[in-house]
Computed example of a mutant assay.
Amino acid sequence: MPTTTPARRPSGLVLFFAVTFGTSWASWLLAIWLGGPAMSAPVAIPYVFGAFGPMVGALAVRVRRGRRGEPAPDHVVRLRPKILLWAPLLMALASASVVGGALIGHELGAPAVTTANAQELFRMAGGPVPFLISMLLIGPLSEEAGWRGTAYPRMRATAGRVRAGLVLGAVWGVWHLPLFFINGTVQADLGIDSLSGLLFALSFIPMTLLINHAYDRAGTFAAVAVHFAVNTTMVLVGVQAPVAMAYVFTLEIVLVLALLAAHRPASIPAARHVDHAAV
């Protein structure tokens, strides 16, 4: 007798992307309409809230999964304490790719790498600690429960890690588009029609593959750590010149290729893992 395969329920990707883009873009469009610098009142409220779109999307998927009684996706990676040693190493490698690219860029005409930019940022934030807290909150913590903890494991159900990384990187880059039109953002300073803006958009591909690798190694905690390292180093060093961004982009690709070649996880996990930050 022929057997009937139970219908597979949606993975939650459509819901995640719909809520993520809806929350972020609606907030950022409001910030654009209000005008003024990103961190000035009242623009700062929708500007900051928009950064939490991926987290809101992740919560929406988690609530639906809980109501349906569905298990976590097979490719969810739990927090792995013994492998957390990889997080500092990957953070150092990620930061080194940014600094290395900036140094090479300087040799070819880009501004020199100095501490002046970092000192000014610390002064504006009220000190190094508030600055680092803001860099951790806006970006790594506000996004990684969504991009890595929710979207990536579900994409891995039907795609390899490279293909999933390429697609997620492209989606992540598109998600940032409204920020080019909010005064005072890094994206607006680069310009959407500039070479630096193009390189910024393209950089999400190797950055996604790098953070995905960290997630595969040690879960969402490692993804947050590497995301934080890249963002913070880019801001502190002040990488904006096209030649410097081009070399950062190149070094990140080299780093990602080396990491992918060195670590080849099984296509199907031997056992399902549960990450408390994953949904």
Rank of each mutant, 00 (worst) to 15 (best):
G22P: 02
T23C: 07
T23S: 11
T23M: 10
A26H: 09
A26V: 08
S27R: 02
W33T: 07
L34W: 03
G35M: 15
G35F: 15
G35P: 15
G35T: 10
G35Y: 12
G36H: 03
G36N: 05
G36Q: 04
G36I: 04
P37N: 11
A38Y: 07
A38V: 06
A38F: 07
A38H: 12
A38E: 09
M39W: 13
S40Q: 07
A41N: 15
A41S: 13
V43E: 03
V43F: 04
A44M: 13
A44I: 10
A44N: 07
A44Q: 10
I45H: 03
I45Y: 06
P46K: 02
P46C: 07
Y47S: 01
Y47I: 02
Y47P: 00
V48R: 00
V48D: 01
F49M: 03
F49A: 00
G50W: 00
G50N: 01
A51Q: 11
A51F: 02
A51K: 01
G53I: 02
P54R: 01
M55G: 09
G57L: 02
G57Q: 01
A58I: 05
L59Y: 10
L59W: 10
L59C: 11
L59Q: 05
A60F: 03
A60W: 00
V61G: 04
R62V: 08
R62G: 12
R65I: 12
G66H: 07
G66P: 06
R67N: 14
R67D: 13
R68Q: 11
R68M: 12
R68K: 12
R68P: 14
G69K: 15
G69N: 13
E70V: 15
E70Q: 08
A72E: 04
A72F: 07
D74I: 12
D74L: 12
D74Q: 11
H75C: 05
H75A: 05
V76L: 10
V77T: 07
R78P: 07
R78S: 14
L79K: 04
L79I: 13
L79V: 13
R80P: 05
R80H: 06
K82G: 05
I83K: 14
L84T: 08
L84V: 11
L85H: 12
L85M: 13
L85S: 10
L85E: 08
L85C: 10
A87L: 06
P88E: 13
P88K: 08
L90N: 02
A92F: 05
L93S: 05
A94D: 02
A94Y: 01
A94V: 09
A94K: 04
S95H: 06
S95E: 09
S95D: 08
A96R: 10
S97G: 04
S97F: 04
S97I: 05
V98M: 04
V98Q: 09
V98I: 12
V99E: 10
V99Q: 09
G100R: 06
G101E: 00
